Simulated scan of single mutants.
Amino acid sequence: MLGVICTLLTPSESAFAQTEQQIKTEIQKKLSSNAKVRSVTAAPVSGLYEVLVGNEIFYTDTSGKYLIQGEIIELASGKNITEQRQADLNRIKWSDLNQANAFKSVRGNGQRQLAIFSDPNCGYCKRLEKSLQQLDNVTIYTYLIPILSPDSAQKSKQIWCSADPYKNYIDWMVNGTAPTGKTDCSNPLDKNLAFAKAYGITGTPTLFFTDGSRFPGAVQVTDIEKKFNSLK
C-alpha cells in the first residue's frame, strides 16, 4: 500500500500536469507536423510555461495561445535563465562519445580533453583548427561529419583512410594541401552522422568538453582555455 501511495500525485500536481499536457496539445495543433513539441513545463516566471520544440526553447501562457521567442533574464543576479537552460539541454555525457570513431591528437601531457565535430569543407572549422595550434597539454578527438557539400564525404574518407588521419586533416585544414588517396576503407562516418542527428549537432564546428557542455562555432582559444580552467 505504501508503494502505491508514494506514486500518487496530489490534486494540485495532477491538475498541473494536466495543464501542461493541454498546452502541449494546443500548441502542437498550431505548429507544422515537422515541428515536434517535446515538452511543456512550468517556467521560472509565474504564468509562463517553457515549450521545447526540437532543441529550441520558447515560452507560452496558460492558454497556449501565444508562442514567445526570447530570453528570460533574472534582473537581481543578471543571470540569463534561458541561456543556462539551453546549455543544460545541449549537454551530453562525455562517455557517450565513442573515441574509436575519431582520430586523436595528443599535445604535451594531454591531460585536458576536447572533442570536435568537423566537416573538411567547413571554413569556420579551418579557422578553429588554425587557432587550436596554440593549445598545449591537450588531447583532441576529431569526429568527421560530412554535412556541408557533395564532396565532404570523399574528403572525409580520404582523410580517415590515410596512414596518418590527423596529419592529413591538418595538412588540409591549416596548410591547404588537399587530401588524396583511397576512400574505400572501413570508416565511422555513418556512425558519426547518426550521433550528430541524435544529439542535435546541426553545424560545424561543434566542440564538447568532459563535463558534457558544448560550444558551437569557431570559438576563441581564450574561451576554450577559460572553459578548461573552470573544469579544474
Rank of each mutant, 00 (worst) to 15 (best):
G3I: 10
T10W: 08
P11D: 13
A15I: 09
F16A: 05
A17P: 05
E20G: 07
E20M: 11
Q21H: 12
T25Q: 12
Q28W: 04
Q28A: 04
K29N: 01
S32I: 09
S32L: 13
A35Y: 01
S39F: 08
T41R: 02
S46I: 11
Y49Q: 07
E50F: 10
V51G: 01
V53Y: 05
G54A: 05
I57R: 03
I57P: 03
D61Y: 02
T62H: 07
K65S: 12
Y66T: 14
G70L: 03
I73Q: 03
L75K: 13
A76V: 02
N80I: 06
I81Y: 02
Q86E: 14
N90P: 04
W94C: 10
S95D: 15
L97V: 03
Q99G: 05
A100N: 06
S105M: 15
V106S: 15
G108H: 01
G108R: 09
G110L: 09
I116G: 00
S118D: 07
P120D: 07
N121C: 08
C125V: 06
K126L: 02
K126S: 14
L128T: 03
S131F: 08
Q133A: 11
Q133L: 09
Q134H: 02
D136T: 12
T139M: 01
I140R: 13
Y141C: 00
Y141F: 12
T142W: 01
Y143N: 10
L144S: 08
L144T: 04
L144I: 07
I145E: 09
S149M: 15
S149I: 14
P150R: 12
S152Q: 05
A153F: 14
A153S: 15
I159Q: 01
C161D: 05
S162E: 07
A163V: 12
Y166R: 12
K167M: 12
K167N: 05
Y169P: 06
Y169W: 07
D171T: 00
M173Y: 08
N175F: 15
N175A: 15
N175S: 15
P179H: 13
P179G: 11
G181K: 05
G181Q: 00
T183K: 00
D184N: 13
D184H: 06
D184A: 04
C185W: 05
S186W: 01
L189I: 04
D190E: 15
K191V: 06
K191C: 11
L193Y: 08
A196G: 14
I201T: 09
P205R: 09
T206H: 11
T206M: 13
T206D: 09
F208N: 06
F209N: 05
D211Y: 11
G212M: 14
F215V: 10
G217M: 05
G217V: 05
A218L: 11
V219T: 11
V219Y: 01
Q220P: 06
Q220I: 02
V221I: 11
V221Y: 09
I224P: 02
E225C: 07
N229L: 06
L231Y: 04
K232Q: 01
